[in-house]
Amino acid sequence: MIDIQVKDTALVEKECLDAVRDPGAGGTVLFSGTVRNATQGKKVVRLEFEAYEAMAIKEMGKIAQDIVSQWDAFHVSMHHRVGSLAVGETAVIIAVSTPHRKAAFEACEFAIDTLKETVPIWKKEVFEDGEVWVAAHP
């Protein structure tokens, strides 16, 4: 099963774990990306996430499909938050269940790495004295 969601409410790890539960799974890996309190020594006040939602869901779906075919995953769950997030809040959760643990670790890392490259979601870091769209400039 593939479970993809873009939400403007708090993400819940258990929902992703429940979505990938499978009696054939020997390993489940969950990655949780959270808002850090500083970037290069500068204090972060909050992050603002914006998504081109229809395409973001489509691109995350492609990643999940790749995981099912490359790592024989049973289930993939990807939830991404949008809106304004405070330090410590969860921005993204990815869970993958596979027959053996090694594949689950690899697939989960592939998922977050690829998401950061291809999924049309943007984050703005808000500092005490300004704000910046992350990765916009070289």
Partner: peptide
């Protein structure tokens, strides 16, 4: 749709 550098996650 204009897609500037993405930065999700």
């Amino acid at each position: 749709v204009i897609i500037p550098p993405v930065s999700g996650g």
